[in-house]
Design a protein around this nucleic acid. Sequence first.
DNA 1: TCCAACCATATAACGACGATATACGCCGAG
DNA 2: CTCGGCGTATATCGTCGTTATATGGTTGGA
Lengths: 237, 237
Amino acid sequence: MVGSTRQHILDVTADLLRSTDVESVSIRDVCQAAGITAPTLYHHFGDKRGLLEAVAAEGFARYLAEKHADGPSEDPFDDLVTGWDRHVRFGLTHPAFYVLMYGGTRSHEHPSAQEGLRVLHGMLVRLAEQGRLLTTPEEAVPTIHSACVGTTLALVAAPDAPAHADLSRRVRDAVLAAVVKQEQPAEQRTEALPGTARALLATLSAHQDPPLSPGEKLLLTELLSRLASTPAPGQAS
Amino acid sequence: MVGSTRQHILDVTADLLRSTDVESVSIRDVCQAAGITAPTLYHHFGDKRGLLEAVAAEGFARYLAEKHADGPSEDPFDDLVTGWDRHVRFGLTHPAFYVLMYGGTRSHEHPSAQEGLRVLHGMLVRLAEQGRLLTTPEEAVPTIHSACVGTTLALVAAPDAPAHADLSRRVRDAVLAAVVKQEQPAEQRTEALPGTARALLATLSAHQDPPLSPGEKLLLTELLSRLASTPAPGQAS
DNA sequence: TCCAACCATATAACGACGATATACGCCGAG
DNA sequence: CTCGGCGTATATCGTCGTTATATGGTTGGA
């Protein structure tokens, strides 16, 4: 059985890492918990870094497999949203892995992290092909990724901080809104009629010299007020 | 001279940290470079963590002093922008410090980092007092901060990546646009009158059942068309 | 003036860490 | 049966952060 002890070491390390910090887990701890001795571990992983990378790669592979499982959906924007959420959830589920991979300055060296970036890039290319991207995919990738990593690190550091409620959603919507063109379908545009009327009302009142007669302006204001007070139909969602 | 050796140790450590990684700098290295022995260092800083925190605090104090130097400007939004830029620049100038403070999960424990968050919170309170904040300051603080930290970490990891050009500005504008209301001055709002009228025209035509009589709708459309065709005065900037 | 208390620093060492040179046993191929 | 290679164990290295103990230099009071 070739891969038996190796997998056993990986599992034990993952268990230890789940309950402790990264630098608190020593080679000796892993060896004692796995029932082996140091040279065995070094024979399989060569290095402590190699062991941790193998553990992180296994966890990240599960995360990527989950991402690939449901495959690309109909709307690449939805893929972007669920991809962001999955990234954050992975960080919160495996805090030690996550800080190990993205905390330092070596995240771009991780093959698994690069794979994640490639998936993100693919989504953005699909979005660009539909003409819904405000920048190039190459520019959008680090924009989204760096914000997502920063948010996840903040959440991992203090998951239960009251100010962190909905933090991921807020940063996600902010960054995505700046990167992808938000086109609203026709029915939503219908619901937006009162808002648009209100906007014109405000603009009109601020305008010092509109090209209208006093009667025309008064009439327009009345009509706009009627539209602005229209109750929005079917406020679903 | 009480603080002489202490300051000397701080300077030497900062020098070593400028050219090497954090975990590559050992207590023994610092002691040899400073011409002292271990107990002296431990007498002054108690701990390796204490030494690194003292060094980071000193660097961050300089950064905060620089921030306080020019003081709050007229527009708190400008303070937000320059504060973001200064944060990123500090990270790029002192990469080892920055990763030490914000890389792991212990950044919120750093007194200096908390001071920075307090400054950010103050700016947002000023902005909220002017009614220009779309959320509460307490929600906006982690939103801005986590995105800024993520961006800075990405830039520190790979400062010269071509895709990272203007990365900080892009994320900054995206997050700030989602948090603070962008109110355009009166003259711009005047120029925006035709555009707003055009928007309402489009919304009106897409609406299948506006609460208007046919005559009212026709009249409104005529007035809006007049406004929409108004030439924008003084297209400066 | 002398002494005692105190503070800063040095000597030497401890325990734990990551890592390794060497040796032992097992097991399939000849 | 033997023999080479692979996996594992023994024992150990050098370095790390840290500290118990001791020493010198300064200072305030008797």
